[in-house]
Design a protein around this nucleic acid. Structure first.
Length: 197
DNA sequence: CCGGTGATCCACT
DNA sequence: GTGGATCACCGGA
């Protein structure tokens, strides 16, 4: 069973750990996610209202919000009812199927090999492994023909909970959730100018 | 640790 | 329309 994505991201995020994301031949088991609010969350793209970039966040749940950052892509599962901009950032996963394709994509922009553990480790790497680009911004994850969210086969035995990675504001809110038994969880990094809130 | 990265947004012309 | 600051990152040393 997939979680009810029309709930708030803080409720949905822990339930997404263990679910799977599939695009073409590549399937990734999600092992690390972060919740972002609309209204009261200064770290959220939606904090200052709707813009062209974050339009999808304001739409109905179950769609993919993709944006580009420092030359990488990052993707979110949009949650909440339409009009409430809350979403879950997908930070890391384990490649379950399509390892060859994922490896080829990753190594296309590297000089050194990638070990399987690192194929979808980190938000940019997860998108890269799956082939997610801004072309998939707004894609329907439940009914769409291209990229799909699939239920968990195995849920984490222990769920880790802690602050989000590398956010400048609201740095201490424990809105990151991960599978404590996975080696593919990305490394925690506090933002150099992190502010509480 | 450090440098490259490139879109986006806002405050200004 | 333009300039500059900002940023939920990555790779290699």
């Amino acid at each position: 069973m997939l979680p009810d994505l029309s709930r708030h991201s803080l409720e949905v995020a822990p339930l997404l750990v263990g679910c799977r994301l599939q695009l073409g031949a590549v399937t990734v088991r999600l092992v690390e996610v972060e919740a972002y609010e609309g209204g009261d969350d200064p770290a959220s793209h939606a904090y200052r209202g709707q813009t062209r970039r974050n339009t999808v966040m304001f739409g109905p749940s179950g769609h993919l919000y993709v944006y580009q950052l420092h030359g990488s892509f990052c993707c979110n599962v949009v949650c909440g009812p339409a009009g409430i901009a809350t979403a879950v950032l997908l930070r890391a996963g384990e490649v379950e199927a399509g390892r060859e394709e994922a490896t080829a994509r990753r190594e296309a922009r590297r000089a050194t090999p990638v070990v399987p553990r690192d194929l979808a480790r980190g938000p940019g790497n997860l998108c890269r492994a799956l082939g997610i680009t801004t072309e998939h911004n707004g894609a329907d994850l439940l009914a769409g023909p291209v990229v799909r969210l699939l239920p968990a086969v195995r849920t984490p035995r222990t769920l880790g909970i802690g602050p989000r990675v590398n956010v400048a504001t609201a740095a201490d809110r424990p809105w990151r959730f991960w599978d404590a038994g996975s080696a593919s969880v990305s490394v925690f990094k506090r933002h150099p100018r992190a502010m509480a809130g």
